[in-house]
């Protein structure tokens, strides 16, 4: 599997796909996309890298253990929910900061935090699965 072409492509694609996945996640509140889809794309980037260079190098690039990402994602999601409770609202009530920049309104809210959590969990869980299965094969 370790072909030079694949390795070159993977090295190039990795940052692009990660950027794209973050973009998908961020725009998800208004356009098709969202944390889940973004997360799958992000996981795909590392999976590709793992195919090209082996799971060990992919783990190296990822730095964190995917299970840590998974845990962090869950933590972020719960905290986004508790954010509202601190402010006296029900669990998971959206809290919003609205900026007016020129013509456009800019909404920044806990929903985004929530989606980031989803993103992290999806990346973490998918990579946990893929890495361990690939390590089993090699």
């Amino acid at each position: 599997m370790k072909s030079l072409i694949l390795q070159t492509i993977a090295r190039l694609l990795l940052p692009l796909m990660i950027l794209f996945s973050v973009f998908l996640m961020l725009r998800g509140h208004n356009e098709p996309g969202g944390g889940f889809i973004g997360g799958l794309v992000g996981a795909g980037a590392f999976s590709l890298y793992a195919v090209a260079f082996g799971p060990a190098s992919a783990r190296g690039v990822l730095r964190a253990d995917p299970r840590t990402l998974l845990g962090l994602g869950l933590l972020v999601t719960v905290l986004s929910g508790f954010f509202a409770m601190v402010l006296g609202d029900a669990f998971l009530t959206g809290q919003w900061l609205i900026f007016h920049i020129g013509e456009a309104d800019f909404h920044l809210g806990t929903a985004l935090l929530f989606d980031i959590g989803v993103y992290l969990v999806v990346v973490g869980a998918t990579l946990t699965v893929i890495f361990s299965l690939e390590e089993e094969s090699t």
Binding site: R67, L74, L75, F82, M85, D89, A90, F91
Partner: peptide, 23 residues
């Protein structure tokens, strides 16, 4: 607020997540 009802979900999740992170 009856945020009380969330806690039976949130507490195990919190402890579960901490246990994942502190594996």
């Amino acid at each position: 607020m009856d945020w009380l009802l969330v806690l039976p979900l949130a507490i195990p999740l919190f402890f579960g997540v901490v246990s994942i992170l502190a594996r």
